[in-house]
């Protein structure tokens, strides 16, 4: 599903060159549940951004579903993000002026689906995530756990193949965090490839496969759970 080979990502800060990723190679199968762990600055988020086609590698190659996506143009990358990839962020990134339903509907609007179909899918998903009563609420009126559930609904409403979650519980209390991780795991059991970035070892160990990162390199890749 995902194949990275010798990926490098360097940033030039002043007169210094910093390697956020330095020769990362990784293969992820369809339906896998993989956690990426490591201390701050180890390159976890950069790796996730490159897998999510939000960032370009400086060198190396990336195949997604058998297709080389390394040098794709902006329009094609956007199309792949729209159709195959869902993102869940630590800070939720909900649009404050849109209701919960409006936020979930946004990817479908960008994809150009007809309005009745969009509304139907949003309704179904909000019901599945226990958010029907909150559909008309603005993000500011929701609890942290509810906001993240809305964000997960938004990430999955287009029925993507891959879900990239960057510290999805980082901004939540313990109980809400557990609910969110269980929701993500249930989505993985339904066939979604789940990549979870976390610096919390306890959370990372729940994944079937755990990748350790340090200084822009993969320092460990093991199976557990």
């Amino acid at each position: 599903m995902i194949r990275l080979q010798a990926i490098q990502r360097k940033f030039v800060v002043g007169d210094q060159t910093v390697y956020a990723l330095n020769g990362v190679s990784l293969e992820v199968e369809h339906g896998e549940y993989l956690s990426i762990m490591g201390p701050s600055g180890s390159g976890k988020s950069t790796l996730l951004n490159i897998i999510g086609l939000l960032d370009h590698p400086t060198s190396g190659q990336y195949w997604l579903a058998g297709k080389d996506v390394t040098g794709l143009a902006d329009e094609e990358r956007a199309e792949i993000r729209r159709e195959k990839i869902g993102f869940v962020f630590q800070l939720f990134h909900l649009v404050a002026r849109l209701t919960a339903a409006g936020n979930v509907e946004l990817p479908l609007t960008l994809a150009g689906l007809p309005r009745p179909e969009r509304e139907e899918r949003v309704r179904e998903l909000l019901a599945a995530y226990g958010l029907t009563a909150r559909a008309r609420h603005l993000p500011g009126q929701l609890s942290g756990g509810e906001r993240q559930r809305v964000a997960i609904a938004r990430a999955t409403v287009t029925r993507p193949e891959i879900l990239l979650a960057d510290e999805p519980t980082g901004n939540l209390d313990r109980s809400s965090g557990r609910e969110i991780i269980e929701l993500l795991e249930s989505l993985n059991r339904q066939g979604l490839t789940l990549l979870l970035v976390t610096h919390d070892p306890q959370l990372g160990r729940r994944a079937a496969r755990q990748v350790q990162m340090r200084d822009g390199r993969i320092s460990g890749d093991g199976r557990g759970g």
Binding site: D74, E75, R77, E79, R81, R82, F87, L106, A111
Partner: peptide, 10 residues
């Protein structure tokens, strides 16, 4: 966010 959700620059 719009870019992450699949909106191209255009």
């Amino acid at each position: 966010l719009l870019k992450a959700l699949g909106a191209a620059s255009g």
